[in-house]
């Protein structure tokens, strides 16, 4: 039995299953982070006082992390492009760099977190720190999810390149879309939490 439209696009929608499914998933993710942003706004408007992020959080570290994520977005899209060019070796290099970038992001995040804990700052300290830890924590979980998916596509999942290159390229594209979304969320998190 074969599932239709795994590889070939659907005549009406013009996309294959994985891509449509992934965009639907992203729509749901928009709502998840939307609900959290909405909570952030409500809490902030209701608060008696609200600290400016930069007085508590480490802006240089976060700026660095922003650049790391943007760079990883470029590499993940390049890895997909390499597959389109039939250059599997380059794909592995670019995907590898993407995963390394993700780890760098998490390591920086780890230092940020521990620095806060060392100063006795935790989610219990204030609503601002609570929302900071919750949203960035959830974002970090998304990063970890991305590492798992990209790691799979670099490691065991890459075998599919030999058997079904087109479906494999589709998978890399879908994983890339997810990764861009993680980047996109951070692009909003950074100014909202650190700068305002």
């Amino acid at each position: 039995m074969e599932i239709p439209h795994v590889v070939e696009v659907h005549p009406e929608t013009g996309v294959a299953n994985a891509k449509l499914g992934l965009w639907l998933f992203l729509a749901s993710e928009v709502m998840l982070f939307g609900a959290l942003f909405s909570s952030y706004i409500l809490l902030r408007v209701a608060a008696v006082e609200w600290p400016q992020g930069s007085t508590i959080l480490n802006v240089p570290m976060a700026t660095f992390n922003t650049l790391v994520l943007i760079a990883s977005s470029v590499t993940v899209v390049m890895s997909w492009l390499s597959l389109k060019l039939n250059d599997f070796a380059k794909y592995r290099v670019y995907m590898g760099i993407t995963i390394v970038c993700a780890f760098i992001f998490l390591i920086v995040k780890y230092f940020e977190y521990t620095a806060k804990f060392d100063h006795g700052l935790s989610p219990a300290t204030s609503t601002f720190l609570a929302i900071y830890f919750t949203i960035t924590g959830l974002h970090a979980i998304h990063i970890i999810g991305g590492i798992v998916v990209n790691g799979y596509l670099l490691g065991p999942g890459a075998r599919m390149w030999k058997t079904d290159p087109e479906q494999f390229t589709g998978r890399v594209e879908a994983a890339g879309l997810y990764w861009h979304f993680v980047d996109l969320v951070w692009i909003f998190l950074f100014p909202v939490l650190y700068l305002l």
């Binding site: 009406e12 729509a27 709502m31 939307g34």
Partner: peptide, 14 residues
């Protein structure tokens, strides 16, 4: 494709 925009439009609306 259009379908992706449709999905996004829904997400943006909600």
């Amino acid at each position: 494709k259009k379908i992706i925009y449709a999905v996004l439009a829904l997400a943006v609306a909600f």
